[in-house]
Amino acid sequence: MSKLFSSENKEIFLNPLNANNPIAVQVLGICSALAVTSQLEPAIVMGLSVTAITAFSNVIISLLRKTIPNRIRIIVQLVVVAALVTIVSQVLKAFAYDVSVQLSVYVGLIITNCILMGRLEAFAMQNGPWESFLDGVGNGLGYALILVIVGFVRELLGFGTLLGFQVVPQCLYDWGYQNNGMMTMPAMSLIIVGCVIWVHRSFNKEEQK
């Protein structure tokens, strides 16, 4: 048991949350980070779905890694991810219909999320299943963390709500405060992601080159 949670494994899990964050440092998965973050709720659900799928596809590829022919490894990875995403989407439709309606196309879009392929190729192909599982969960949560930050800022400033509840009080609107319509545009999330990366780098000096 102690081996399962050794300091190296802790490192594998914690690294992607901060020092090697998939969005802020590896700059992977930006596309979906821009698309789903205009409100907090889809950002959270998307973050969790990606976490589940990176974790399990990492485990499967890690188990298969010694049998996979080198020349078609990307195809094999893609098939595993696509099959997993399809299964998740089918299961959601049968047992959690409301969630599947809410996620609509984004479940399918997880297949194209670069974090998945990036982690499979960079980590799961070289490491054992347990390390790969931790790496998948860590990267998924690192991704979710940035999505939640961006979703929080955009929903608060763009709609004056959080998770659909009004948080900006009516009296502010009475004094002339207005929701910032720009925040609802996808372009703003790119700018916010930029700001997040800027803040992140200024706290992590070693990344500055």
Binding site: N70, R71, I75
Partner: peptide
């Protein structure tokens, strides 16, 4: 695992299973 036959069989088996 880099042989042609292995690669083709692997791909075929994988696709059928999936």
């Amino acid at each position: 695992t880099n042989g042609n036959i292995y690669t083709i069989v692997y791909a075929a088996v994988m696709v059928v299973i999936v």
